[in-house]
Design a protein around this nucleic acid. Structure first.
Lengths: 224, 224
DNA sequence: CCATATCGAGAGCACTGCTCTTGACACTCG
DNA sequence: CGAGTGTCAAGAGCAGTGCTCTCGATATGG
């Protein structure tokens, strides 16, 4: 395989270089980065880039998948040790820290969807890693009896949540799945609000305010 | 004034027509709509549009301000009558309903910021109307003793929040300001999650799930 | 009525994503 | 070791973009 890989290795390396350069351009041009500019930075013709990515959308998709994966890894690593509360806050801060370190990639995956862009199925796997990392902690805490399970959710939403629980965390109470998802959504909103400038001229103590919110989610979910 | 307004009226009308057409293009092209395409739809030369908006950014800014204003009006109208809980949920649903009816304008104001685009100061006034509508309800409820004020927030965040309270709602306890803001951020995240497709293939009962979350925020804030 | 300000249209510049063709290189098989 | 094959980079070219400038036409105000 090493024989065939001389060409393959060059291809893989150049693919990575293109992605890295594109990631850099993300900072200045956002989702409408210029493929030609990326090629120019690499000293190659724009048409040559099309040997590696069939379109600009495909390049963006690659960046999106990488971003989801990196965020998922960061979130999972943030779970760490300690009490369930500490693990929860650990994941929250890990997500926020990653977003602060990679704001343009965060915007790419959680900002407004590019019209006409259809996310391929490859993205959903990496996309749910972060929320699953959160859910696992709630589930573990619930198994240990450290979470007030609370009232079941009635109606069709309740049934639907039971289905979600079945697929994502068999045996977990649907209402805890719902509250975990709500926690993730709040986390997501808090990070986006901070990154997208909604806290400018209002809140300077970003980290403290974020933790205040995540502790609130924690208590509402029912940790005790 | 009617004398001078023949030209002025035409100008105002055409300005509105350009914005309306641009709003329509928002649906297909998002923030990178084509000024030329807008002009084409209006049967005028692209250069003529520049008599009305100095740049594409300026056109987008006009759309952004209009969107903030429309959302603010919808939120304020949603406060309506009833108990404090009902008013809170009324605003939440009003915001969500507006976003569902105007998804591309929501994406414009709460999606990823366009790199290189600097929001002019004119946007902050309309931008805060919605969150103020929420905050007013919490404040009213607190004045009526229907909210558990809870523990004060210590440290620099607490001091900062006291300043925010001073400016936005004099006399209101800083911790309630913080929880109101957190509620708005959660609301914002919930709407964005729904609109940006993060609930696809997971939650179908969108309205119920949204209300579940907003009731959660309600109880965490301390309504009783 | 006439000077002035405003406006629309068109040409043009530099840029974009993307396609197609051409020629060079590396690899594989006989 | 040499011929054939697949892969690659480069360049030209097309249609589209934001934006500027110039040039006539039209309405406004003194």
């Amino acid at each position: 395989m090493t024989a065939a890989s001389l060409r393959a290795r060059l291809r893989a390396e150049l693919t990575d270089e293109i992605k890295a350069t594109a990631r850099r351009h993300l900072a200045t041009d956002g989702a409408n980065l210029s493929l030609r500019a990326v090629a120019r930075d690499l000293g190659m013709a724009s048409s040559a880039v099309y040997r590696y990515f069939a379109s600009r959308d495909e390049l963006l998709t690659a960046l999106i998948i990488d971003a989801y994966d990196a965020l998922g890894s960061a979130a999972e690593a943030g779970a760490g040790e300690g009490t369930y509360e500490e693990r929860w806050l650990g994941v929250c801060h890990a997500v926020r820290d990653w977003a602060l370190a990679n704001p343009y990639e965060w915007a790419l995956i959680y900002g407004s969807p590019v019209p006409g862009y259809r996310a391929p199925g490859d993205t959903v796997g990496p996309a749910i890693r972060a929320v699953l990392a959160l859910g696992r902690i709630v589930r573990d805490a619930a198994d240990a009896g450290r979470v007030d399970v609370g009232e079941p959710i009635p109606g069709r939403l309740g049934e639907e949540l039971a289905g979600v629980a079945e697929r994502a965390a068999p045996g977990a109470p649907p209402q805890l799945v719902a509250r975990s998802m709500a926690g993730w959504i709040h986390l997501n909103g808090a990070v986006s609000a901070e990154l997208f400038g909604q806290l400018d001229n209002t809140i300077g103590e970003r980290r403290e305010f974020f933790e205040f919110q995540m502790r609130g989610a924690l208590s509402w979910i029912g940790f005790r």
